[in-house]
Simulated assay, not measured.
Amino acid sequence: MTRMSHILIVDDDPHIRDLLAFALGKAGMSVAEASDGEDAQAAIARRMPDLMVLDINMPRLNGLDLCRMLRAEGGAGAALPILFLSSRDDEIDRIVGIEIGGDDYVVKPFSPREVVARVGAILKRGTRAAVGATTVTHNRLTLDTDGWEARWDEVPVALTATEFQLLLLFATSPAKVFSRDAIIDRLHGPGFAITDRTIDSHVRNLRGKFPGVDLVETRAGIGYRIGRCA
């Protein structure tokens, strides 16, 4: 029997929580709710979700600060997939959300179907990476797709779901240069409205987690590929 994905919805608007809880529940997912970042911390302590839908603007511990705390603490929270919600269609907010470790971003008002689709796409990344229980090695880099773990010289490096999948994409085709459009299609599926700058932010996050390492090579005007990792 397939395990039901557990989603934590964090938003100070009860109407939005109800709307998303209904849509996600109808899609076959279990749901927990929190009204702000502090309530979300308590909910995570009770049960680690498979993904968190997180509003940015909340009165107590906003979404950006909660994301920063989870990523800094390490452990399961460092890899928890996060879909940000925001009432502002501001590219700065969008890029900041991705740069601090968010996996995707939806602007209010939104279609519940779009949120469900994006949640499903993020969850599928983890499912695809886990299939086959294989290990991918590229010089000093090792990616364990069964344990969902990246290691550098056998030392674990905490990555988000999107960062892991992006690095896995590069490492499994080391000779290939991926355009930003190709990366978007591989990670999100065709038709998702993701900007090139979002991909650039994910790559920048990856590089920041492997300081001093030739991790990802930029081919000007073309895209990205795995570096030497030496």
Rank of each mutant, 00 (worst) to 15 (best):
R3Q: 13
R3A: 13
M4G: 01
H6M: 05
I7L: 03
I9H: 01
D11T: 06
D12Y: 03
D12L: 06
D13Y: 01
D18H: 12
A21P: 04
A21M: 09
L24S: 01
A27T: 10
V31M: 07
V31H: 03
A32T: 14
S35H: 09
D36T: 09
E38C: 06
D39T: 04
D39V: 02
A42H: 13
R46K: 06
M48R: 00
D50P: 00
V53T: 13
I56R: 00
M58H: 09
L61V: 12
G63S: 09
D65I: 03
R68E: 15
R68V: 05
M69V: 06
L70G: 03
L70T: 06
A72N: 08
G74D: 05
A76K: 14
A78G: 15
A78K: 11
A78N: 12
P81I: 11
S86I: 04
I95A: 05
E99F: 02
E99W: 03
E99D: 15
G101W: 02
G102A: 07
D103T: 01
Y105C: 05
Y105N: 06
Y105S: 06
K108I: 08
P112M: 05
V116T: 14
R118T: 06
T127D: 12
T127C: 02
T127V: 10
V131M: 08
G132H: 10
A133S: 12
T135W: 03
T137F: 00
H138G: 03
T142D: 05
D146Q: 14
D146S: 14
A158Y: 05
T160L: 06
E163M: 06
Q165A: 15
L169M: 15
F170H: 03
T172Y: 01
T172H: 09
K176M: 11
K176I: 10
F178Y: 14
D181L: 07
D181H: 03
D181C: 03
I183H: 03
D185V: 10
R186S: 13
P190V: 06
D196H: 11
R197G: 01
R197P: 00
T198G: 01
T198I: 13
T198N: 08
T198P: 00
D200Q: 13
H202E: 08
V203A: 06
L206F: 08
G208E: 09
F210V: 12
G212T: 14
V213T: 13
T218G: 09
I222V: 15
